[in-house]
């Protein structure tokens, strides 16, 4: 009986020493997972996830603080990718988060008063213009984040959905009716 006790104590002491030492010695800094998650996010920097940008959201996911289904621009596809990356179950969009059609900002030049507020709001510097001068959206840089909408004092920015053009037309997934039509 006493032998058993001694064996246990010796083992525990040894393991404790090893573990305690390694815990201090081999601490891992940084988190490569954040980069991987960030690479999957659509980089609209729109903040619709509740975090101030894609990177902070990625960090929150990596820490396990945020769910994977909060990114509307990423769409269903994005959730699947995150689920794959993190090895967790796919989750449909929760609450009010819903995927949206892709859109770019468009400034109605007739109404724009050149206040520069939208320029400051744009996370990717896709709006150019100066005070009291025409503002223009560089369509190719616009991520469709809608962050420029609220600050505009004259509501001159709209978000028309990108229409399908000949150059970006896609072949559709063939639909084969296997189930009886209800």
């Amino acid at each position: 009986m006493i032998t058993a006790l001694w064996v246990m104590i010796a083992l525990a002491a040894l393991l404790g020493l090893v573990l305690g030492f390694s815990a201090v010695r081999f601490k891992i800094e940084g988190n490569p997972l954040v980069e991987k998650i960030d690479a999957v996010l659509p980089q609209t920097q729109c903040g619709q996830c509740g975090y101030p940008g894609c990177k902070p959201y990625a960090e929150a996911i990596a820490k396990g603080e945020a769910d994977i289904n909060l990114c509307p621009p990423g769409g269903d596809d994005g959730i699947h990718k995150l689920a794959d990356l993190l090895g967790v179950e796919y989750k449909p969009f929760g609450g009010d988060a819903k995927p949206k059609a892709k859109a770019v900002a468009f400034i109605d030049e007739q109404t724009c008063i050149g206040c520069t507020l939208c320029i400051q709001a744009c996370p990717v510097d896709a709006i150019v213009g100066a005070a009291k001068q025409m503002h223009t959206v560089i369509a190719s840089e616009c991520t469709g984040c809608e962050l420029c909408l609220p600050p505009c004092p004259v509501d001159c920015i709209s978000m028309p959905a990108i229409e399908e053009r000949l150059t970006d037309w896609k072949w559709k997934h063939p639909v084969i009716t296997l189930r009886k039509i209800a």
């Binding site: 063939p174 639909v175 084969i176 009716t177 296997l178 189930r179 039509i181």
Partner: peptide, 9 residues
């Protein structure tokens, strides 16, 4: 709407 429901593949 239930009509035209089709499964793929």
């Amino acid at each position: 709407p239930l009509s035209n429901e089709a499964v793929q593949g």
